[in-house]
Amino acid sequence: MRHLLFVSLLLVCGLVRAAELPETDWLELMPKSDQKALEAMPEIDHNSPEGQGTFDSKGGLKQSKGLPAVMYSTKTVASMNDKIIRLGGYPVPLETDAKGHSTLFFLVPYPGACIHVPPPPPNQLVLVRYPKGLKISDIYTPLWVIGTLKVEKVNNDLADAAYALDASKVRVVVEADL
Rank of each mutant, 00 (worst) to 15 (best):
Y140P: 00
P142R: 04
I136G: 00
K36Y: 09
D82P: 09
E20N: 07
Y72P: 12
V172N: 02
P121G: 08
D45F: 03
A98Q: 06
K153D: 10
L9G: 11
Q52G: 01
V16Y: 05
P109G: 03
V92T: 08
F105M: 08
C114A: 05
G66Q: 00
T103V: 15
Y110K: 04
L134A: 02
D45K: 14
W26F: 10
P68I: 12
V16P: 00
P42T: 07
A161R: 07
Q124E: 07
Q124P: 01
S73G: 10
A161V: 09
L107D: 14
E28A: 13
Y72R: 01
D45L: 07
Y140C: 00
H3S: 15
P68T: 09
I136H: 01
H3W: 12
T103G: 06
S137Y: 00
A159E: 14
E95D: 12
A113M: 05
E152Y: 04
L38A: 11
P49V: 08
P91D: 02
S137K: 14
T141L: 06
E20S: 13
P68N: 04
A19H: 13
L178F: 08
P120W: 07
N81G: 09
W144P: 03
R171G: 01
K36V: 13
E23T: 12
V108L: 11
S57R: 04
P131T: 02
K75R: 11
M30V: 02
S64L: 03
W144M: 09
G133H: 02
G133I: 04
F55S: 01
D97K: 05
P119K: 07
P120S: 01
P91T: 07
H3A: 15
D166L: 10
R2M: 15
K65D: 15
Q63A: 10
V70F: 05
T96E: 14
G89A: 03
D56E: 13
S8A: 15
S64V: 14
L10A: 13
G100R: 01
V128D: 05
E39Q: 12
L87K: 02
G66H: 02
